[in-house]
């Protein structure tokens, strides 16, 4: 971001963050959870924050939503400076945290009523707004039951309704679809897209590549407290200019590893990795390389169950920018000083 943008955020930016930092001190040392995160989120878009466990996604969201004091840098949300006017920010945003936030002993309706009142909705408006959200999220049958009795998906729907009660212009969702079945996830995505059509800006934290790919207009990949890359999903994949050749041999684990070594030498590939019982070759031009791979396998009489060619995935993007696969657990844990 250039200096001009830094001092004068564009009118259409719903979120601008400059060099956000946060460290936590604990008995075992200092954890630099967020180490200079820059963000610019266009109003009316869905923005995805993607990254492995402990990358600093939740911490970033907590700073943007006024829950944590900002150690360094600055942020503006919905046109308001987060550190200077937290209460104004709270009026304009909705937040559904990773832990959810429904009061489980209370009924869904009691949860919604209290949230509406704390947001200062007019008494005459509250009832209509609650009914509207109950209908939208199909909660009518359970709304007068304690939230403790809801299924995971039902509870999520209530929690998102809680975040939306005051019609916020920016909505933050921290892993909204974790643990949901595919159907419920898809329906949640539809809700989120409908919100975007209504002009709401949505920030979604997720671990799911397909979610980032299909739902988000823009994604930022966060790793160890910084944004390692940012862009539209298809641009990120295109920028990689890379394909993957996937070879599925009919071999035991040790032989697969051996095959990986042979393939890496025989074929001009960037990386060759064993992923379960398949070997994945990252190559610059798949259509040009595939015949060479097939020729090698035929010559060496390697028994094959399948061979395929795939364009770059977001996982490849992640791998290229961080040197790790998003699907693997972070081997080093969090960044510690």
């Amino acid at each position: 971001m250039d200096d001009n943008a830094r001092s004068q955020p564009q009118a259409h930016a719903a979120i601008v963050a400059d060099g956000l930092q946060k460290s936590f001190r604990s008995r075992t040392g200092t954890v630099d959870a967020v180490r200079g995160v820059d963000l610019a989120v266009e109003a009316g878009t869905i923005f995805g924050l993607l990254g492995p466990n402990g990358a600093g996604k939740t911490t970033t969201l907590r700073m943007l939503t006024t829950l944590l004091p900002i150690d360094g840098g600055r942020a503006e949300v919905a046109g308001v400076d987060v550190a200077r006017a937290p209460r104004e920010v709270r009026r304009r945003i909705g937040y559904v945290g990773q832990a959810g936030g429904a009061d489980l002993g209370a009924t869904g309706r009691e949860n919604l009523l209290l949230q509406a009142r704390l947001h200062g909705l007019a008494a005459s408006d509250i009832h209509d707004r609650v009914t509207e959200l109950v209908d939208l999220f199909e909660l009518a049958e359970l709304i007068d039951r304690p939230a403790r009795t809801y299924s995971g998906g039902q509870r999520r729907r209530l929690e998102i309704a809680l975040g939306l009660i005051h019609r916020p212009s920016v909505l933050f969702l921290d892993e909204p679809t974790a643990g949901l079945d595919p159907q419920t996830r898809a329906s949640l995505w539809d809700h989120v897209r409908a919100l975007r059509s209504g002009g709401t800006t949505i920030v979604v934290v997720t671990h799911y590549l397909d979610e980032a790919d299909q739902l988000c207009d823009t994604i930022a990949i966060v790793d160890r407290g910084t944004v390692v890359t940012e862009g539209r999903p298809h641009e990120l994949k295109a920028a990689l200019a890379r394909d993957t050749v996937i070879v599925q041999p009919r071999l035991g684990p040790e032989e697969v590893a051996e095959l990986r070594d042979h393939l890496a030498r025989a074929v001009p590939s960037t990386t060759a990795v064993v992923d379960g019982d398949v070997v994945r070759l990252a190559v610059d031009d798949g259509t040009a390389t595939l015949p060479a791979v097939v020729e090698f396998l035929r010559r060496e009489h390697v028994p094959i169950d399948g061979i395929s060619l795939a364009g770059a995935s977001l996982d490849d993007v992640f791998l290229a920018h961080t040197g790790r696969s998003l699907r693997d657990p972070d081997p080093t844990g969090s960044a510690r000083r």
Binding site: L67, R91, Y95, G101, D103, L104, L118, H119
Partner: peptide, 16 residues
């Protein structure tokens, strides 16, 4: 309990 279930966090993001 309410820290664990996120209730306090949710309430703290309201302008209350």
């Amino acid at each position: 309990t309410e820290l664990d279930t996120g209730v306090l966090e949710r309430l703290r993001v309201t302008p209350a």
